[in-house]
């Protein structure tokens, strides 16, 4: 109980600003390969951002840097007021405050759906198992699969698995949600159920960064669309302007190819 109240009351504390994420001059290399080039990006609280671009453009790397699944060599990333460069402590805090959904779901196959959802709240947040279970059931309800709680991930369809993954992330009460191509591994008929879940989440005011090629989703929920190519942010703008009158040649080419 106390855990929850302290989190809530300190929510505005480190983030005295309205910024959920700021990236400043971020550079990353994989050996010789320059994966992120001077990325500067700010995300306001409650903002919904869609990041698109050709494969290998660095978009996944970009959002994986936000919860430090990837380290950076140069620049500064501040998430919810915590500087990721300030040491392990702030990285831990940031990981608790950000939820992530992966292309390949990455559910824990040896645990039931419910256990998948309760493990981190119990072990990381220290909530009681009864409370964690109640929270998990609430979120499974919200992603519309409460009846699957006692099944194992392998018994579910891809769309259901991804919705479990979203519920699992939400059980940690994150302030920011990161989506790394959440619908790319799904059969076409299952894409919609996952997107609908994400749209619900967006309508509740969650700060979201989504790497996705679902342009319909981008039009519908994004406050801002970012186009990346070869490790750079080439263009960004409100979806209306971005889709109707892209400024850059590369953006036009990309949009021409995917539509």
């Amino acid at each position: 109980m106390t855990e929850v109240t302290t989190t809530a009351s300190t929510a505005g504390m480190p983030g005295t600003s309205d910024l959920a994420v700021t990236m400043n001059g971020v550079n990353k290399w994989y050996g010789q390969f320059h994966a992120l080039k001077d990325i500067t990006l700010t995300v306001a609280r409650g903002e919904r951002i869609v990041i698109c671009g050709p494969s290998g453009s660095g978009k996944s790397t970009l959002i994986r840097c936000i919860n430090r699944l990837e380290s950076i060599q140069k620049g500064k990333i501040v998430v919810d007021g915590h500087d990721l460069g300030a040491g392990a402590k702030s990285v831990d805090v940031v990981r608790q405050e950000t939820g992530m959904v992966f292309q390949s779901f990455n559910l824990f196959p040896h645990m039931t759906v419910l256990e998948n959802c309760t493990l981190a709240p119990i072990k990381v947040r220290g909530v009681s198992s009864a409370e964690a279970e109640a929270t998990a059931r609430k979120f499974l309800e919200r992603v519309r699969i409460p009846e699957q709680a006692d099944k194992y991930p392998a018994q579910l369809s891809g769309g259901q698995q991804q919705r479990v993954a979203i519920a699992r992330a939400l059980c940690m009460n994150p302030k920011i949600m990161l989506f790394d191509e959440p619908t790319s591994a799904l059969d076409p008929e299952m894409v919609k159920e996952v997107l609908d879940t994400m749209i619900d989440l967006a309508s509740e005011g969650m700060t979201m960064l989504c790497v996705t090629h679902e342009m319909g989703f981008a039009r519908q929920v994004a406050d801002r669309v970012i186009f990346m190519d070869q490790g750079e942010i080439v263009e960004e703008g409100a979806p209306e302007a971005f889709f109707s009158s892209p400024k850059h040649e590369r953006t036009r080419n990309f949009l021409g190819q995917i539509s």
């Binding site: 919860n67 699944l69 992966f102 824990f108 990381v124």
Partner: peptide, 8 residues
Amino acid sequence: EAATALGL
């Protein structure tokens, strides 16, 4: 990665 992202 999933476990890390959850803060474990």
